[in-house]
Each structure stands twice: as C-alpha cells, then as structure tokens.
Design a protein around this nucleic acid. Structure first.
Lengths: 338, 338
DNA sequence: CTGAAAGCGCTAACAA
DNA sequence: TTGTTAGCGCTTTCAG
C-alpha cells in the first residue's frame, strides 16, 4: 500500500510518465491534449496521487522552501510575523523552515548553514545585529534574502521595517501634548539596529519639539528585557532624575519600569508616564494598561514573504525598502503631567 | 560557481563517488579505509561540500523532517513547546515543519496533506479536538505520531500531556487551604479533551475534599478566550452566585474574569480569588498577579520530539503515554476568604 | 501532441 | 576495502 507515483498514474491512464507530468503540472498543461489532461488528472485523483516535491526538487533544483531566521520564537514579537509569512507562502506552494539563533552569531551561522543545506530558495532574516558579516557573505553569494525589522546598513538588500522613527515621534507627541517637557528614553541595546534607530529618532524628536534634550536622559539598555529596563530606569532615577515620562525602547523595557515603580512607590501614570513599543499581547491587562506603539506584525511578515517570492522569481529585480506605518495605542500608563 | 556535489569531491579525492559517500556519512565511515576517509573528508571541507539532503531523501525515502501541527503559533502556549521540540530535533539532524490549523478541521486536513506530501517522517500533533477522525486515519496508515497536550481517546498513539488532573487538584487544595468552600470552575470548551479532563478533575477534587460540589458551579466556556471567560463568569455570578473563588480552565479565561471584576467592582483577591492554568508569560505583571498552574512547556515539546524520534527509528515500539508534573505558582490573585 | 531517454545527487546492493 | 551498477520520482530536452 505504498503511495502512488507518477508512473502509477501514467500507467493507469495509459500514457507515458512524461505526459502525465505535463498534464499534472498547471504550468505545462497547455502542452497536452485537453482531453488527455483531464483523464490523467482524474486518474491521479482516483489514485490519491500526490507529487513528491523532493523528487521534483532534485530535478529542478528548487525546494519550494524558504528559511526564516529569527532570534527566538518564544519572543512574542515573532509569532505574528511568522504567521504573516506563512499566510503568503502557503498559497504560493512554499513552506517556511524556522530556525532560532538566540542572537548568537555562531549559532546563527550554523543555522543558516543548515537552511542552505536544506536547499532553501531564500531567506527571511529577522535578527537585528548591527554588525553582520554573515549577511554580507550571503548577499555576495546572491542568496535571495529579505530583512525584517531592520535596514541593512550599506547592504543592497530588500527590507521591510516598521517606521520606527515615526513611532517614536508619535510617542513623543503624545507625551508632549500631555504637558511633559522632560522625557527620558530607555533605548534598546546599541548593537541592535532597531535600538539605535529609535534612540536617534527620540533625540531628534525632543529637539525638534523644543523639549528638554538633555543627553543624559537617554540610556541604552543592555538587552531588550524587563530586567535591563528596570536597571536602566533605576540608573536614570538615581543619577539624572527630574523627568516625568519615559519612552521605552520596547514593551519589555516598559514592563521593567513597572517593576521599579512598584519597588519605589512611584504611581503610574500620576507620578510618571510610560509608553512602550510593539503592542505585545495582553498589555491591556496590566495595571495600568500600557500605552504603546502598535506594529503591524502580521503585515510585516506578509510583505516580507511577498518580496522574497518576487526576488526568487526574478533575481535581477532591484532591492526594495518598505516602511510600514505604526499607530499609537493610548491606554492607561500615560496622563497629563501632575 | 555552482555548489560542489559528491561527484566533485570524489573526483578531487581520486575515489569513486560511492566511496566518498561512505566516507562522508558517519554511519558508514567504518566501511572505508581510515586514511581514505580522512582524505575525502579533508577534500570535502576544502571544497565546501555540503550534502544535499533532498537527493539523499529521494534515495532513502527519508526527509529528516517532521511535521508540527498546531492550532495557532500566535497562541503563547505553543512557541515554548515548539522550541522544546526543535531543541531535540536539531541535534538529531531533523527539522520541523510547522503548520497552523486554526482549529479548523478542514484546514487541518489540508495542512496535514501538505506535510505528508513533503514527506515528513512523523507528526507531532498539538491540536486538541475530542473528535478526530483524521488522526485515526493517520494512525491506520501507520504514520508515526505523537500527541501533545491531549490523550487520544481509544487511539493507541503515544502522547505527552501535563498532569491536568494533578494541576487542578493543586489549585483546589490551595484554595481550600485558604478557607474557600464553594469554588466555581470556568471550564474550557467541551469539544477539547483538555477542557473535559480538567473539568472532570475539578468535580472529583471538590467532592473528594468535601467542598461544595454543586454542579451548577461548573460552566464550560465556548472557547479558551478572555471573552468567553468573562461571559462565563457573568453567567455564574448572575445565575448561581455564592462562591468565593474560581478555578479557570486556562489563563485566558482567568483574564476574562479580571474584566468582569473591573466592570462589577469586585475586588480580587479580597472578594474573590482566581487561579489560572498554563502560566503564560507576563502574568506576574497583572494586577493582581495571577496565581496559576505552571506547565513545563519546553519539556513537553522536548519529550514529544524524543518519543517521535524513537517511534520513527523503531515503528514496532508500542505507544507510550507520559504525564509531566505541574506546579502551583502562587501570586496575588488568591487570598484567604474574607 | 506524445513518447523516449537522460539525469538531478545520492545511496545501496552486489561484485571484485 | 573499493568500484560498478542501478535507481529513488520527477522533469526536460529531443525526436517522432
């Protein structure tokens, strides 16, 4: 009771395997008598024939597979992006192979090796280190590739990013409209492109709006985590002070602020406002619900997949850079300055 | 500048491709002169040779790939399980192909088809419908398979589940020790095996402990969501009442309770205690932090992958059922009855 | 429009 | 221990 092969179908339909192949493949169906094609298709269905993409891949040197390189699936940022990707890959007949790098360059290298050995036709890369020799290498080898969440410095590679600067501006505008004049920024790690982009945008935004642009108010956290966010806020509170609001590099860092508020008896939003970035799930259940910048994760993923598919179909196509607009979600962690 | 094939390596090393194959494959390396093997390996490295698993798969009818069937990657329950799976798959040289079913039986069928056409060697299934003709079919076709989070009713299939009953007992014990005597249960959907298992365990637990076992205190939600949890609690409050604590079928349902507390001015935990199930991320940031039952997600995934690999290696191996112990995480949503 | 033949890259008998 | 041969299931020239 082995699964039927193309030969079986051809036999049953009384044609040559090559003809069966042509009939079954929509792209070549035109080369075959419509009647014959119909018959082959019917027989194939009857037999429950399903083409073996491995065999096909061997012949065509295509795997109908693409690699997704992400830092950690467990980070709530990524699942929606992955779904967005799968949503466009699937109808196109492609599958995604996911690997986690844990932001470890060696691991990343090994995992990309693995993907390449599995003959992926392209890569969607969602890791965000600023230094990235591996990517340059891949680019040189003409591996179709699109970057997610980061713009590759100096690399002529397609990318799709949220409008980080725009998001930060919205956050600052919101806070300014509530009367805040001295706003701190707990930036993401300075090795990450997202971290530096947002940080730079923050500095510009406060300056442009004539708010207090004391550089001491900007502090980069070591990691995108609650702990580092908490540490950062403690430092800012102890060594700088005088601010009434903080723009966090992401939601996790904002959550770290909540911890410090609790430990120091600071009331949010009465004493201090916070805004996050990303709009992770369940932020509305916090106390107070976190005001944040929402990213269209799923769209980002979908768009990335579309771009990659295009690049695979036409490798000569020039790299594109797409920025998706963000939106401010106002909740309870921001209020007019007391 | 095409990537080197086994033939290229063989040529360069002055041996026959078959010999090169044997030398390069650790499993067959013993069949070859150690010196020759060393030379072939060195040449392969020099050339940057990387075996093509597609070609290998075509020959051996193995894809070194397994399918992960989950409802929705976006549900925070699954990413840690997936990581646990990948963590054991990877060193074994396997990769996982993830598909999302959205709990839609038709979609599930299509996705499983897709996986099978991609020649996966086995399936890890984490969907939890009680009725599951598809699974029976697959089982009949001897597809190696392990179930995660659910025990297949009547099906002789390996499974790995959390000890749901034990978890519920811990929750009830905890509440009882705080003096609660009349406890409600907002169960998961009765089409899900997890929902009914926990619900049954709850009924037994309250009866065994001599607590109020009024059946009206148990209500099944339509979905594992906040909304349905909220609806359920409203119904219970309006039509039954008199309870001082609720055991929720999962954390999301517990979150729904929080919404109702807010809307009715019920103070948690002073007026009412709640315990969740799963220990999703960030529950400690809620107000109040949610007391819940923690599931070792990653271990579950890892164990499932191990079992599947065993089943693939030895299909005659009988099905096993593993239950992983849970733990109670006491936080702020439970307190002694006022 | 269809059949014949070759071969993608690799491995598994079998023979030497 | 190594080479020969054949073939996994499919697609793709090239003839017919």
């Amino acid at each position: 009771m082995t699964t039927p092969t193309l030969r079986d179908v051809a036999h049953a339909a009384g044609v040559h395997p090559a003809t069966a192949s042509r009939a079954l493949n929509p792209a070549t169906r035109g080369l075959v008598n419509a009647e014959t094609a119909r018959r082959v298709i019917k027989v194939a269905e009857g037999l429950g024939y399903r083409p073996n993409p491995i065999a096909r891949g061997l012949k065509t040197a295509k795997s109908a597979t693409i690699g997704l390189v992400i830092p950690d699936l467990t980070n709530p940022l990524f699942p929606p992006i992955v779904r967005g990707i799968e949503d466009v890959l699937e109808p196109a007949g492609y599958s995604g192979l996911i690997v986690n790098t844990d932001n470890d360059p060696e691991r990343e290298r090994a995992q990309v090796e693995l993907l390449r050995s599995r003959q992926v036709e392209g890569l969607i890369v969602a890791t965000a280190l600023v230094e990235h020799p591996l990517l340059e290498e891949l680019h040189r080898q003409r591996v179709p590739m699109v970057m997610v969440n980061r713009r590759p410095a100096g690399l002529d590679v397609s990318s799709i990013t949220p409008d980080d600067a725009g998001g930060i501006e919205m956050a600052v505008d919101h806070l300014a409209s509530l009367g805040h004049r001295r706003i701190a920024h707990l930036a993401g790690p300075s090795e990450t492109s997202t971290g530096v982009t947002r940080s730079r945008a923050f500095t510009n935004a406060v300056r442009d709006r004539g708010l207090d642009d004391d550089p001491a108010l900007v502090l980069a956290c070591d990691l995108w985590t609650e702990e580092c966010g908490a540490d950062g806020l403690r430092t800012l509170l102890d060594e700088v002070g005088g601010f009434t609001a903080v723009v966090a590099g992401n939601d996790l860092i904002a959550l770290g602020c909540y911890d410090v508020f609790a430990e120091r008896g600071i009331s949010c939003p009465r004493d201090m406002s916070v805004v996050g970035f990303n709009d992770m799930a369940f932020l509305d259940k916090l106390a107070p619900p976190l005001t944040t910048i929402a990213i269209p994760h799923q769209q980002i993923g979908a768009e990335a997949a579309r771009m990659l598919l295009e690049a695979i179909a036409d490798p000569s196509r020039p790299a594109r850079t797409v920025q998706l607009p963000l939106s401010l979600v106002v909740r309870g962690s921001t209020a007019a300055v007391g």
